[in-house]
Amino acid sequence: MLQNQNHQQLMTDLKELVDKTRSQVAAQVNSAMVVLYWEIGKRIKEDVLDNKRAEYGKEVIVQISQRLTLEFGNSFSEKNIRKMMQFASVFSDFNIVASAMRQLS
């Protein structure tokens, strides 16, 4: 019976360890994705559109979206690319983004 209790405790401890590690990995991935999306929005806004709302910008965003979606999946739809750009516009200073991520973790 003692051995059975030890086995149960071991299994409980191992499950907790797996759950804790999964949560830590998920938090790290989420933080990395926030940085990625911010950087994509910033680069498009600054490099492609030169911080202007040029008419050609619409086509450029469509092309970027199509190429990224083809290679990396639906996370890079035109709608999401525009949200990334908006995110980078609203939070133009990366220190604000980094501070918010620390609070969310």
Rank of each mutant, 00 (worst) to 15 (best):
Y56Q: 02
I96Y: 02
A88N: 01
S77M: 03
A26N: 08
T21W: 03
N74Y: 09
S105Q: 11
V48Q: 07
Q86I: 09
E71C: 11
T21A: 06
A26S: 09
F72M: 09
N6V: 10
E16W: 07
F76G: 13
V90G: 09
K79E: 10
K45T: 11
Q3H: 01
Q5E: 13
I81V: 12
V34A: 11
Q5R: 14
R82S: 03
Q63F: 07
V29E: 08
A100G: 03
K58F: 01
V62W: 12
E71H: 15
I44D: 05
K58N: 05
L104Q: 05
Q8A: 08
L14P: 07
L14R: 11
D19C: 15
D50F: 04
Q66P: 09
D19G: 13
Q3L: 04
V35I: 15
I81D: 01
A98M: 04
K42Q: 14
A98V: 04
A32R: 13
K15S: 11
G73M: 04
A27Y: 06
A88C: 04
M84G: 08
A98N: 03
L2M: 06
L104M: 03
F87L: 11
N51Y: 03
D50E: 10
Q5H: 12
L10W: 07
E46P: 06
F91V: 14
Q9H: 08
Y56H: 02
G73L: 05
N51W: 04
